[in-house]
């Protein structure tokens, strides 16, 4: 009975979404959007940011929206990741941590191969972060890729634990550095997170990457450690 009710409820929701999409003047059909009338055209032609020099406008418009035009949203998003990392540490953290014994003995090929893969993944992450202005990617996947390279090291060795305190310090410094960069913009131009020098955007990208990497490494470490008996 409960399952039938849930089925009816879910199907009704789907039908209502599809009905509200068709023949709606406010909501265009699939592949027929007219975003050049709205706010997006301002982002695409960079009118929103004012009359800027070409050096200040990134080629990748998505990065421009994330870091420049909607930088305040990104600051909130970084805060959410920070808080969720703290929440996981609060739920799973212990006083004297030790690796969970998985009874998994990696053979020679796996441990050497994963160490070689670590370097490749780490450098790819840094490359993606540094080229976020000109190529697809950005600081979120770059930071996550750096965290994944640390995860590879966790899998290659049964007793490995990274120095989590350094990642925690980097995460906290990056989150405060983000606010500091915003305050620098406030000081010089009167706008929070103002983009008046090409260096500003690069700094914000690196800071976001450090924050994401620190947060995810903290979460992974909390999942793989337990109380020392």
């Amino acid at each position: 009975m409960k399952k039938i009710l849930a089925f009816i409820f879910a199907i009704t929701l789907g039908v209502m979404i599809i009905l509200s999409l068709s023949n709606n003047e406010l909501f265009t059909d699939f592949g027929d959007t007219n975003h050049y009338d709205g706010i997006s055209s301002g982002y695409i032609t960079s009118e929103v940011g004012g009359d800027e020099e070409p050096a200040l406008v990134p080629v990748n418009i998505v990065t421009g929206i994330l870091v420049d035009y909607r930088g305040f949203d990104t600051l909130g998003e970084v805060t959410v990741l920070f808080v969720s990392s703290i929440g996981v540490a609060l739920l799973l953290g212990v006083a004297s941590p030790k690796r969970i014994n998985l009874n998994f003995k990696p053979n020679f090929m796996l441990s050497v191969g994963s160490r070689a893969l670590f370097g490749v993944m780490f450098l790819t992450g840094i490359y993606i972060v540094l080229h976020a202005k000109t190529s697809p990617g950005g600081s979120f996947p770059g930071g996550a890729m750096i965290a994944s390279s640390i995860l590879i090291l966790y899998l290659s060795n049964d007793t490995f634990r990274t120095d989590v305190s350094k990642f925690k310090l980097g995460k906290s410094l990056a989150a405060s550095g983000f606010v500091l960069v915003g305050l620098i913009g406030l000081l010089f131009t009167g706008e929070f997170l103002a983009n008046f020098h090409p260096f500003i955007m690069d700094t914000i990208l690196v800071l976001i990457a450090i924050d994401v990497a620190g947060g995810i490494v903290g979460i992974i470490d909390n999942f793989l450690t337990e109380e020392r008996v």
């Binding site: 998505v62 994330l66 949203d73 990104t74 998003e77 959410v80 990741l81 808080v83 969720s84 990392s85 929440g87 996981v88 739920l91 799973l92 950005g138 979120f140 996550a144 994401v212 947060g215 995810i216 979460i219 909390n222 999942f223």
Partner: peptide
């Protein structure tokens, strides 16, 4: 892009 990263946070909290 921001929604995906927040999704990891919520999944991690739920799993813990």
């Amino acid at each position: 892009l921001t929604a995906i990263v927040i999704g990891v946070g919520t999944t991690a909290i739920g799993l813990s």
